[in-house]
Each structure stands twice: as C-alpha cells, then as structure tokens.
Design a protein around this nucleic acid. Structure first.
Lengths: 121, 121
DNA sequence: ATTTTTGATTGCAAAGTGCAACTAAAGCCG
DNA sequence: CGGCTTTAGTTGCACTTTGCAATCAAAAAT
C-alpha cells in the first residue's frame, strides 16, 4: 500500500504544469540552492554559508535530488580531492527563469526583501 | 525552546525575496489553490474536486493560511448558509503572475504537462 | 423528521525537517 | 611520518507536517 508523497521521481499528481513543477522544486530549499548556483557558488560549504542556514543533511539530500532530476551535476575537484564542484546543467539553468520570476514577485510584493549582492544578473 | 518551522506568519529566514516567497507559498498545495481561484473556483468542494486530490484537512489549513496572509477572503453565501465563497484579494491576485510564471516554466520544460481548460487566461 | 449537502475537525500513522554529533577521506604542516 | 584541519558528508533523535479515513455540525432538501 504505497502512499505517494513528493520527491524525486515519484508519480505525478496531475499533468498540470504548476503541480508538476511544485512536485519537483516546490519545497523550501531546492530553489535557494539553485539561486546560489546561479550566483556562482559551487561548493557544499558555500551553500551552507548562505544566510538561510540550511542543515547539512537537508543540503545533501536536496543536492542529490537536484542531481537525480538532471538539474545539477556533481564532479570532484582535480586539484583538491576533498572538494566537490556542483554546477547547473543546461536544464538546471532553465530554472533561472523560474527563480527570477519568484524573486521578482517577492521584491514587488514583500516589504524589506532585497536581492543578494550579485543577484541582479 | 522554540524551533522555527515554516508556516504562516513565522520568522523570516532571510530578506531574500525568493526565500520569503517560498516561506509563504512554497508548499505543494497553496499555489494550486490559487490556481483554482484564478480559474474561477470559489467553493471548498470545487477545490476538493481538482484532480490533484487534496485532502480536506490540508485544504482547510491552506485556505486558513492564505486567508491569514491576506491573499484570500472567506465569506458566507447569502442564499445558502452552508456555502462559503473563497476569493482572491487584490494581493492574492498578484500571485497570478507567479503562478503563470511557474505554469510557463512547467509547460516549456516538463513533457506531458498541459494547461487545464480555462487556464489560458 | 430524515436524509443529503457543505465545509469542515479529529485521530492516527507515515514522511519530512532540523539540530547536534559524529565520520571519513584528503590535504596541510612541522 | 603523525597529528591537526578542511571538506563533504552520514547518523540518531525529536519534533512537525502530511495524508487518509472517519466523523461532525449546521443548513438545506425531501
């Protein structure tokens, strides 16, 4: 008796583009990671340092999710074997439009919100 | 020892417009209800009938949340005392832009997604 | 008066989130 | 080499949220 909760690769609730999009990235963290990637961050530590304060387990799980969805690629750093470089795929970059749309709405409708430095790209 | 989980009216994680927007409507259901309201639905039963199949308790709680945020108003039907009319406030209507942006991204990037009839408005 | 409709609430189990502690591999430094 | 540090995680546990099914209460319909 399987219950269908959200997450990577689960069954769709409908064919509505809104519902499907929310099924993929409709949580509190995924798009913030995408935001950071768009801003040029590439490392685990850098995402961790963002002011929202994501926990390491959540970050790890969201990065895996985004990777499974084909939005992010993970590759080791040649010069430093400890480091990992996360980056957006072409598909992941398409999320930029979505992220900017959300940022735009927030800026217009939520007082005291401001773009992070470098976010105006 | 209060832990700050998400939800209506809690403290912001940052002043990032993306984070703040996600704090308000970054869950699996709220924007689908907004979608339905934009499509002209007004009643509890109508939201319930949407193909995604929201549960009554979740619907109830999301409607309350959207009301608390000032996006939705609830008023009783004069002709039928059982019925309740939910509708978008001016502020709630501004979410239309956000919803359309998400729908747009979904349509372009997720195969097999199609707009509900009447959704092309 | 009984049944149906409408808009919910309640109880419970399962899944998700957040925090703190811990780990493991690789690099640094004397 | 050997111990310390950095980087990228994993694990355990408590708490919260979600989803389902059952139930409820008021109003309307019959």
């Amino acid at each position: 008796m399987r219950r269908r909760y959200r997450g990577t690769g689960r069954q769709r609730r409908s064919n509505c583009p809104i519902a499907c999009t929310l099924d993929l990235v409709g949580d509190r963290w995924s798009l913030l990671i995408v935001r950071d990637l768009l801003l040029g961050k590439t490392r685990f530590d850098e995402f961790l340092a963002s002011e929202e304060g994501i926990a390491t387990n959540i970050l790890s799980s969201r990065l895996k999710g985004l990777e499974n969805l084909g939005f992010v690629v993970r590759k080791g750093d040649d010069r430093d074997g400890r480091r990992v470089q996360y980056s957006l795929t072409r598909s992941g970059k398409s999320l930029g439009k979505l992220v900017r749309g959300i940022a735009d709405w927030g800026l217009r409708n939520l007082p005291q919100t401001t773009l992070a430095p470098g976010g105006g790209k």
